[in-house]
Design a protein around this nucleic acid. Structure first.
Length: 592
DNA sequence: CAGTGAGCGAGCTTCCGCTTGACTT
């Protein structure tokens, strides 16, 4: 009797290598390397079909939106390798990712390979020996409804892009492009620029003073004028983007601020602590990385662009240092949770590790969660120190970032205490009383902060958060003035998007996928819609022109909610509750 | 007759998402 031999097909060659180790010699594991078939380019459809809609879209819109597929360029060798391997196999396992695209790849494989042996659909969400072997035991049939949802997504994108782009060629300029993803992305950048152009800056003054507690060992500290006779002083947050002041606040101009500073500075004025309040709070660690959060954090902490981050992560993945880097799930496998917890215990002590394992669930709109979070690979994480001779430069920095974030995600909350002191100054020589406030934050228990802290985007019109230490103060304590200054400020316009903040905004609306965030950035810059100035994304004039035109003529398609509502309908198609052809008909021909 | 101009047809640009290398930015 011949020895049974099985062929397993996954999407990624690196994954094939790892899985092959878990499955033993009766299995051959090969990769499709992504999609193997594609809607053909209209210019490549046969001459006799050129006159029909197939010649325009490679989709027959008049006959049930039938797609016209061809082998993806460069994939003939992959396919012949798969066919050759299938010849020696008595069973085929389609182990592409368990998401919409993965299901479609599995179906295309069936269409192209036409296997004569039994076929099973095998799925797993983490690459561990247990998960892979468990998946072998729990195979299922191909989900044709899910495949249909993917096909619908693919067709919508072709119809949208190839219908609207030519309108732009005719009306504006050759070579322009529009699409379900790129057009809202450009629109975000354009709208932000419009806000900046319409922005009216406002000027205001504040008054800051330094006080000496006159107690041995206690430092001089800075406080800010908060109220005068109980009336709040205006700050940047009290202005809107038109420069209009709102709220019951007192605006200080130069003269008023200088006068107050002078009055506070008069020798002998009473300066007294009137209240000291300590508020304890806790901070929780951030969830493990997804593609989107990795790109954001690598931008903030390492100043790396989206593409650079992904290229570096790809290298780490292929060398077996991290798990898959294109994921929308922050979930860690059980194996990873115990690895993170034991490493944190060893390095920081048991009191630094959260009592129960922390579980994170995704919140992004169209998450498909085929993979786990991005984390160090393996049952025992390698510390950055252990890899310091193997990894260098950006690869090392990115690994360290991923390692810290993963370990911190299983650690204790940090405990902090924010103390706010109110200081009465007065009566001043004009009879009024000024109140200053100072606050200081002290970390009372570091918890996860011992390993890692997420960076924040710079916030607008807010005082640089002074994480200063406040001296010990007592109510009724008299202070002496060291110096007092009036300073002018201006409100600033909303900041331009960066690659990181644009990826974040797109993800929040469910626009784009982990595999495309980086390429969306290069697409809109290569097409000339957006240029990078430092980190900032600046729209070109052609972007204003195109977006204006699309808003006037294709408003619904440009709606930020278009993708989200499409996703809802695709889910219904995947559940067999909505007819794909009817939906496409409504999308393309309109009406009811 | 030579030169000009109207009119026509063909070819080019374009989408999103999955995956790696290839040396076109």
């Amino acid at each position: 009797m011949a020895i049974s031999h099985k062929l397993v097909i996954v999407e990624s060659p690196a994954k094939a290598k790892t899985i092959s180790k878990y499955l033993g010699e009766n299995f051959t594991v090969l990769a499709s390397v992504g999609h193997i078939r594609e809607l053909v380019e209209p210019k490549n459809v046969p001459k006799e079909l050129k006159k029909t809609s197939i010649g325009k879209f490679a989709v027959d819109v008049d006959n049930g939106f039938t797609p016209y597929y061809g082998i993806t360029a460069g994939k003939t060798k992959t396919i012949s390798d798969l066919k050759a391997a299938l010849k020696g196999a008595d069973e085929l396992y389609l182990a592409t990712d368990e998401d919409r695209e993965g299901e479609a790849i599995a179906w295309h494989l069936l269409e192209v390979l036409k296997p004569k042996v039994p076929v099973k659909r095998m799925v797993f969400h983490e690459i561990t020996k247990e998960a892979i072997q468990g998946a072998l035991e729990h195979t299922r049939a191909l989900d044709t409804d899910l495949v249909e949802a993917q096909e619908t997504r693919r067709i919508v994108d072709r119809l949208y892009g190839y219908e609207i782009s030519p309108v732009l060629w005719r009306k504006i300029n050759r070579g322009l492009s529009a699409g379900r993803v790129q057009s809202p992305a450009v629109r975000l950048v354009v709208e932000r620029e419009r806000e900046r152009m319409a922005f009216v800056s406002a000027a205001y003054f504040d008054v800051k003073a330094s006080f000496d507690p006159n107690t041995a060992g206690e430092p001089v500290f800075e406080a800010k004028l908060q109220t005068v006779d109980g009336q709040r002083i205006a700050t940047g947050e009290n202005f809107d983007d038109k420069g209009q002041l709102s709220g019951n606040v007192m605006l200080l101009d130069s003269a008023a601020a200088e006068a107050l500073a002078a009055a506070v500075g008069v020798p002998g004025v009473n300066i007294e602590v009137v209240s000291v309040e300590a508020k304890p709070s806790t901070r929780r660690p951030a969830a493990p990385f997804t593609t989107s959060t990795l790109q954001q954090e690598a931008s903030r902490k390492l100043r790396m662009g989206a593409k650079q981050t992904m290229d570096t992560a790809q290298g780490l993945y292929q060398e077996g240092y991290i798990t898959y880097m294109r994921t929308d799930s922050p979930t860690l496998s059980g194996q990873a949770i115990s690895a993170a917890r034991s490493q944190a215990t060893k390095m920081f002590g048991a009191e630094y590790v959260s009592d129960a394992p922390r579980l994170y669930s995704g919140k992004s709109k169209n998450a498909q969660e085929a993979h786990e979070a991005i984390r160090p690979a393996g049952e025992v994480f390698k510390t950055p120190a252990e890899l310091s001779t193997l990894l260098h430069g950006r690869a090392y920095d990115l690994y360290e970032l991923i390692w810290k974030r993963t370990v911190a995600s299983q650690m204790q909350d940090a405990k902090v205490s924010t103390t706010t002191a109110k200081i009465k100054v007065g009566p001043l020589n004009d009879g009024r009383t000024a109140e200053f406030t100072a606050s200081g934050t002290v970390v009372t228990f570091r918890g996860f902060l011992a390993a890692y802290e997420e960076s924040q985007d710079e916030s607008r019109n807010q005082d640089e958060a002074a994480e200063s230490k406040l001296p010990n103060l007592a109510v009724g304590q008299k202070l002496s003035l060291v110096e007092v200054n009036a300073k002018d400020h201006q409100t600033s316009p909303p900041p331009r998007y960066t690659e990181a903040s644009l990826v974040k905004a797109l993800e929040e609306d469910g626009i784009g996928r982990p595999s495309t965030y980086a390429s969306i950035m290069s697409n809109i810059t290569n097409k000339g819609y957006v240029t990078k100035r430092g980190q900032a994304l600046v729209p070109e004039w052609i972007a204003f022109t195109v977006i204006r035109f699309l808003e006037d003529n294709f408003g619904k398609m440009l709606d930020y909610k278009f993708t989200a509502s499409m996703e809802e309908d695709l889910d219904l198609i995947a559940d067999g509750k909505l007819n794909a052809k009817e939906w496409l008909k409504h999308f393309y021909f309109g009406g009811d």
